[in-house]
Simulated assay, not measured.
Amino acid sequence: MTQRLAFLASDRPEAQTARERLVQRYGEHPLDQAEVVVALGGDGFMLETLHANLDAMVPVFGMNRGSVGFLMNDFGEDDLPARVAAADEAVIHPLQMDAVTVAGDRTGGLAFNEVSLLRQTRQSAKLRVSVDGRVRMDELICDGALVATPAGSTAYNLSAHGPIIPLDARMLALTPISAFRPRRWRGALLSHGAEVAFDVLEADKRPVSATADSTEVRRVARVEVRERRDIALTMLFDANRTYHERVLTEQFAG
């Protein structure tokens, strides 16, 4: 059966060229009429595509025309409908970020990878960390901290020495970024239903920004993070290199 495909591409020339060739070969449909979205770019563009697809919630099959491409399949023009039909599904849920600034302004955002807090100046951030309404750390002195989804655990979280989480583990990673005190704290694994809150201590002296994927809020005073199980998007991966296999391989990489 012929699939209704929509093709989206990043601004990179190689992605735009690939889109033109694929559209000419397979045709295309508008996003609201498509059965599958084919995203052409890197991991950053995959995140953009997922955000753009929140209303339609159409499965996304990515092909790497960027740099890292951990969330993307290898690029190939041949037999695309067959690859898509045989693809393995990986269902992901985003995080909800609710940030309050020092001035009292409120901003929300969704993150498929992570919600991160980062110091804005040369001075370290001071954070109070609470889980499910209970203070778990009175003072974390650090460059920042993040809460990562399983899908995002191989991104910034991994670079900050956080754990890799299988997609079906129903867990979140709470990971410090360059922790100074307590120096040996490496973070925590939390239930996917946990609600995490960061209170910024000395917010005027030590300003902190919060970011949910591409949504950034400056000079925050408090940030609350929780998983949105009511939002479920599907990424498609080639059957011979599923997301689960990628995560397992990453854990044994040198």
Rank of each mutant, 00 (worst) to 15 (best):
E48Q: 13
K126T: 10
Q3W: 15
D88Q: 12
E227P: 02
E202S: 13
D11T: 08
H93C: 09
D230W: 00
D43I: 09
D32H: 14
D79C: 08
A160V: 03
D138E: 12
V91F: 01
A160H: 02
R206I: 14
Q120A: 10
F45D: 00
E195H: 00
R128E: 11
T49N: 06
V84Q: 05
V58M: 04
M97Q: 07
R219C: 14
A253G: 11
G27C: 08
R184H: 07
A82F: 12
D79P: 04
A188T: 01
L95R: 00
D204F: 14
K126L: 13
G69P: 04
I165H: 05
A253V: 08
A87I: 06
G144H: 06
E245A: 11
N240T: 08
T242I: 02
L236V: 10
T215H: 13
D230N: 02
D238G: 07
V200F: 11
T175E: 01
F7Y: 10
L118Q: 12
H93E: 06
N240G: 05
V225P: 02
S214C: 11
S191T: 13
R170E: 12
Q123G: 12
G152W: 04
L146N: 03
A52K: 09
V129K: 00
D78K: 10
E35G: 15
K205H: 15
Q96T: 04
S153E: 00
F7K: 02
D213Q: 10
A34N: 02
E227C: 02
P150N: 06
E77M: 10
G66V: 06
E114G: 03
F7S: 01
L117I: 06
H93F: 03
E77Q: 11
A203N: 15
R12L: 06
F45R: 04
R184E: 03
G41M: 05
L167D: 06
D43C: 09
R122A: 11
Q33K: 15
P182L: 00
A103M: 15
T101Y: 11
H161W: 15
M63A: 12
V68D: 04
A87E: 07
R128C: 13
L8V: 14
T211N: 12
H29M: 14
R241T: 07
M46G: 08
I231W: 01
V129P: 03
T234L: 11
T215F: 12
T249P: 01
V58E: 00
T17Y: 04
A203E: 15
M63E: 14
